Amino acid sequence: MSDSEIVRYELDGEVAVITLNRPEKRNAVSDRLIRALADAVTRAQTEAKAAVICGAGKHFCAGLDLGEHVKRTPIEGVHHSRGWHAVFETIEAGRIPFFSALHGAVVGGGLELAAATHIRVADATTFFALPEGTRGIFVGGGGSVRVGRLTGVARMTDMMLTGRTVSAEQGEQWNLCQYVVGAGEAKSFAIDLARKAAQNAEMSNYAIIHALPRVEDMSRADGLFLESFVASMAASSPEAEERLNAFLDKTAARLSHPST
């Protein structure tokens, strides 16, 4: 299987759809897959306004390919982990928002990948797990930072120490995902969300995915100070002026209660 087959890439209008395509291995992340994913993510940044990552077969991603990992020396393990960090950082801190469509196993490195995306949609078949403790290893794809911040250190510790699995519904309560939909509906739902985000002002999307994580790391005063600068810069763009005038002229769509 070529790199273009192990990770499929499709441009659907302004949305790039990136599919992990190793279903016979539950989309476990091999060295070839991570390299192909890096290429697809880089491509999406150049030609799309939003992107969706999903998995072929019955599972999103069952994590690290342990058959490759068991053969690594300690220094090779460090370089391997840092390689994952680079790819996932490009997803989290790139030019466009990324959505993930989750189903089946979202385990170990699969959860680390999902955590690097900005919006996570899980269908009813989804289950989350971090079984590294039972495997004698430790998270290496950024999970100690991203997953810990999403769900809290205590819950992440529980998952890693006990091998606990978490359902989609529990995962939403724990902030592992933001949406739960019916079985088989995650991909289409995530693409619809990505299409909506692609219609936003490019500067607004960039500010949202870059400023908010930094504000979280700052003191209250520093966060408020940065917010003022980002708000001023975003509002001064020509696109912002056009959109604000459309709102004032009552030609822009109005918000409504979610029940309608």
Rank of each mutant, 00 (worst) to 15 (best):
E14L: 04
R155A: 08
L64T: 02
E14R: 06
G13P: 10
L66N: 13
S30T: 14
G77K: 05
P131A: 07
S4H: 08
E10L: 09
E89G: 03
T134C: 11
L248G: 11
E241V: 03
L113A: 12
K196H: 08
Q199W: 12
C61V: 12
L161S: 06
R26V: 14
T125V: 00
G223Y: 02
G77L: 06
D217Y: 03
L224G: 05
R120A: 13
S204R: 15
S259D: 15
A116T: 02
V153Y: 08
V106A: 06
Q170P: 10
A246L: 12
I75P: 02
R22E: 09
I53C: 06
T73E: 07
A16H: 09
G57T: 15
V107L: 09
T117H: 04
H210N: 02
I96P: 05
N175A: 14
E202Y: 09
A198R: 05
H257W: 10
G110C: 09
G223V: 04
F127W: 13
D249V: 09
I137A: 15
S232V: 08
S4A: 14
E47C: 10
K196F: 13
E14F: 09
V145A: 05
V153E: 08
A101W: 05
V230K: 03
A86R: 07
G104Y: 13
L113D: 02
S228F: 04
I137E: 15
R214E: 01
L37V: 03
R164F: 13
E169D: 08
C54D: 05
T134E: 12
A28L: 13
R120F: 06
R43G: 14
A235C: 11
G104K: 13
K250P: 00
G67W: 05
N175R: 15
K25V: 06
G109V: 02
E242V: 08
F98M: 08
S167P: 09
T117N: 03
A115Y: 09
G94K: 05
R149D: 00
G109W: 03
G55T: 13
H118R: 00
R164V: 14
M160Y: 12
A194Q: 05
D65W: 07
E68V: 03
A129E: 12
G63N: 02
A50W: 01
Q170R: 07
T126N: 00
A86E: 05
E239M: 10
A16M: 12
A116L: 09
G110R: 06
L244V: 09
G77H: 01
G110Y: 07
